[in-house]
Design a protein around this nucleic acid. Sequence first.
DNA 1: TTTATTAGATACCTTTTGGTTTCATGTCAA
DNA 2: TTGACATGAAACCAAAAGGTATCTAATAAA
Lengths: 107, 107
Amino acid sequence: MHSQHSSQPVFRALADPTRRVIIAMLAEGPRRIGDLVVEFDMTRPAIAKHLAILKQGGLVCVENKGRERINRLNPDALKSAADWINQFEQFWDEHLTKLKAVVERET
Amino acid sequence: MHSQHSSQPVFRALADPTRRVIIAMLAEGPRRIGDLVVEFDMTRPAIAKHLAILKQGGLVCVENKGRERINRLNPDALKSAADWINQFEQFWDEHLTKLKAVVERET
DNA sequence: TTTATTAGATACCTTTTGGTTTCATGTCAA
DNA sequence: TTGACATGAAACCAAAAGGTATCTAATAAA
């Protein structure tokens, strides 16, 4: 049952709402840190820390372009979180089946 | 793009490795707190707190049975986290398509 | 070659988190 | 009814998380 690959950094990265918004923004296209900062009521070091955690989780990768740094979303890491959750797909299928059975018996 | 329902408590619940193990255990069947505690190198209050956070996230619900309390996994909440992640399914499909194209050009 | 732009690094602070010990409560069974 | 069992609750603590202000470094453009 328990999957092996440590999904800890990914779930940790997903835990913060600011980071999830950053993920949504990067899904629309690559951004520099400055581009992200102006969207939040927060200083740059704060966003930089969030990006660092997203990188740790493998969710974001960076490309150096002169003095700029382009941040890109790496969807593969997100997929690994989805995979962990989907371990339980079978469980909730059964759950819904049972629920349906109960409802049908009651009507 | 951004889904409305606050998924914060769910992702917060998923962030801790102990809680994810608890989820995996409850997926095999309902358990009392005591049953969970013996599986960890941790005191009961610690597990109780983790369960409280899982309940907050809607991932676990409890049924009082005399002096016992049966904890059950609620898969619907897990599904909401999966839904959030799946918002980006299209993105990583595109990503993989582009990657494939690059690889094919290089060979 | 200055000057503005884009960004990383460091030190610091406050709140939250994850854990503990200790004590109180309700229920089943002898 | 007394004791054992299953659990909840409160007070406390160290470490991590999330934020700030400030300083430094590299590149582009005037």
